[in-house]
Amino acid sequence: MYCKLVLLLLVTLFHGSAYAESAYSISSGAKLFKKCQNCHQIGEGAKNRVGPQLNNIFGRTAGGLPGVKYSKSMVQAGEEGLVWNNETLNSFIENPKKLIVKTRMSFSGLRKEDDRKNLLLYLSEFSKDATKVKDLENFTKNKNQNVDPTILSIVGDPEYGEYLASECMTCHQSSGLDDGIPGINAWQTEDFVIAMHAYKKKQRPHPVMQMMAGRLTNEEIAALAAYFKDLN
């Protein structure tokens, strides 16, 4: 019944959209949404399931829908100001654990930019506050905000990382315990580098982390990643 609902909506939307003929299409997005619909509903009568229903996802505060079982880190991200929009959703869908390290969403992400554009275009059809998503120029900007492979390939110096990490230890405990500030031990290098660059570019919301990451060079971020990777 649910599938029927989606299809019905699709037909309606397809007619109304000026983007149906552009390079990105709602119908492609709808196909991609099948990956999501085990956990998420969208459209008329959509209800929260494993994940939140996605009507009006644009403009919604992360972790902010009542009655949904979110991860603590998703709720915290919302409290710290994360609001779903074109840019943040694009980043989340690309690699959910990049934006919210401990998200409950067990989805590895859509690595292809075109797929994300299509999916967001589809999602935006169910959001009142989604005018921005139709500005496809934003995606180009987004692309530049992703971490350059040459940055990801920098091999960090763990000794320098250990020194730099001492600054992190004022808040993040070396034991990895979380008493209100998460432990950051044993992170995969790439995840660590991506997260720190997301703070540096102010994609991830948190004023202290944006400030701390903001003054680190690419080499320094790589050094930290190299150190924390092996810290248990």
Partner: peptide, 23 residues
């Protein structure tokens, strides 16, 4: 600021206290 953000800031300060005293 919202009450939620202020609460998150307080919880963060508790995390900092645990962190710096462990350090």
């Amino acid at each position: 600021e919202s009450a939620e953000l202020r609460k998150a800031t307080y919880e963060e300060s508790e995390g900092w206290y645990a962190g710096i005293t462990a350090d």
